[in-house]
Design a protein around this nucleic acid. Sequence first.
DNA 1: GAATACTATGCAACGAGTTGCATTGCAACC
DNA 2: GGTTGCAATGCAACTCGTTGCATAGTATTC
Lengths: 186, 186
Amino acid sequence: MALDHALLVSLLEKPSSGYELARRFDRSIGYFWHATHQQIYRVLSRMEAEGWISAEVQAGETAPDRKVFSATAKGRVELSRWIAEPVEPEGTRDALMVKLRGAAFGDPQGLIAELEHHRAAHANRLTCYHVIEARDFSGTLDPQRALQYMVLKSGLRFEQGWLEWCEEALDLLRNIKQVKRRRTTS
Amino acid sequence: MALDHALLVSLLEKPSSGYELARRFDRSIGYFWHATHQQIYRVLSRMEAEGWISAEVQAGETAPDRKVFSATAKGRVELSRWIAEPVEPEGTRDALMVKLRGAAFGDPQGLIAELEHHRAAHANRLTCYHVIEARDFSGTLDPQRALQYMVLKSGLRFEQGWLEWCEEALDLLRNIKQVKRRRTTS
DNA sequence: GAATACTATGCAACGAGTTGCATTGCAACC
DNA sequence: GGTTGCAATGCAACTCGTTGCATAGTATTC
């Protein structure tokens, strides 16, 4: 149920159309939640039906019509309720880890390209976050900004961690000896 | 499709019943993939139907019967195929981040307990991983162990990162000024 | 002797996320 | 003047994961 609330937060920060939200989720918001436009439109309809958000159609003269959503008072209440309700930390789920561990039964070196790709992707995200940091979070910050910054900082921290880990893993893969194919129980 | 392959890897490492797999996913394997027993049983049936794994029923004299699964040659091939196919790094999805950012529109201090809970959970996982590290990964490691260790290391790194971040976030929340309720667009 | 807990397996309903496709209109390019 | 690309919205089918429940025998505890 968390996409609902991520959208509520986004709409409280700035009323927007589904399309804008999708773009922001692809960019800056991407570092705290990820979603596709299809999903976003679906959830927006549902939330409108429940009265958490309300829409205002802006007829575009040159561009297509836009439905601009804002959070309602009811939506605010729902958000507070949800924030107060405890959640457990997420369980790990990363395909790359499965692959690494599975590579012991195949060709570890085959993962080098994959890891290099991941390293590049994480380096990319990291610089992206650094740009946002410099642009939006220098100087003194009001409480709202400070909270946003804290979220960004987790992104910075984790991308940095990924980067270092990728290096470490690449080192290992490059130096590992070719594993002998061992038959376990067929 | 990654639970399938996580199970294949586990079964290559050690043939097991669904129940055993569920227990291992709750413990040591939990740091590289998470799943419930219901899900595991369902996927095991599917994989058996596809011929990736085969079952042997062990009639328990004192305990209930167990279906012990092992990966077949076909399963091995499928695993290699899947490992070779590229994946993109996962998008971020953490409810806690949404909450932090949403707290700007409510009561930031209300999250302190939640963050303390998360900090404790991560500290717990971290010590758990340290125990595994000391128990299973000291001394020289063959290639398979080395790969497993690399996966564990990502767990260690991220739990450590979480812990530090929780501290930082708690510091912020404790010192943040009470946010004035501001009405945005209704 | 009854209640609780653990081993061991599974079904069914639901909710969340992914993938593929469809539509309309404007703008710019070649 | 046709093709490509972007703004803007959405449906439908599917897979993956969660939650709640069911069963059945053994072992232990009160």
